[in-house]
Design a protein around this nucleic acid. Sequence first.
DNA 1: CATAGTGTAATATACAACTAGTACACTATG
DNA 2: CATAGTGTACTAGTTGTATATTACACTATG
Lengths: 117, 117
Amino acid sequence: MTLDFSRDKPIYSQLVDRICGDILKGNLSLGDRLPSVREYAVETGVNVNTVQRVYKELEAMQMTETKRGQGTFITTNEERIIQLRDDMKKQLAQSFLTSIEALGFSKEEMILVLQQK
Amino acid sequence: MTLDFSRDKPIYSQLVDRICGDILKGNLSLGDRLPSVREYAVETGVNVNTVQRVYKELEAMQMTETKRGQGTFITTNEERIIQLRDDMKKQLAQSFLTSIEALGFSKEEMILVLQQK
DNA sequence: CATAGTGTAATATACAACTAGTACACTATG
DNA sequence: CATAGTGTACTAGTTGTATATTACACTATG
């Protein structure tokens, strides 16, 4: 694989987003095992510690459960996933609103732009 | 003044946003002179070099014009401001779309959330 | 033409975030 | 109980950001 990473955001953060996305989209199923930190490090071309940080973040979000010696698994708690999905949606919307307000755009004009794309 | 800065973004970047916003919103008018780097540094409680970086960025965006010995002024080129406003609007929209796509949200469902706020 | 107020530049320092290399600790399995 | 495969922890180096300090270059003004 060896992914491309944008430089304006930490790699670990981009990987968290990617995995979150895969889970929320259903590309990964509840209970699935993620690659080991070493495997995933090789796949993506980053350091083991970076992957560890990714898995740590995911676990802190209660999106995964980590078992030493066994691996990291996507939570089987479906409610938690649903809740996370909703939280993220709200958070995305809120930070978007904050940004546009800071630059003086109205919600309505931005929605128009979005609809045109 | 002595502003509060969020820790998740560089200070210089937050100041750029603030001034951009003030210009785009019309709080600052075309041709207005910004405070001197030293004044603004004291006002905001940051270092002169940080303010200098802010003014440099603004000039690179052609949002201001800097005259050595005189000060930094908001461009009188109204077209440029209009263009910047439009560019930023599109850029905001695009990065929003990229984010929501990465996490598996649809444009439509996000617009609904935005409208409810 | 001296002076004070502009922006600009260079250097050193400090600190935090990020990443990498390496070694350690736990678990399943034959 | 040895071994291979897990996650974890420690240390160090790099980079970006911010600060402090100092000096320089230009402009307006008395």
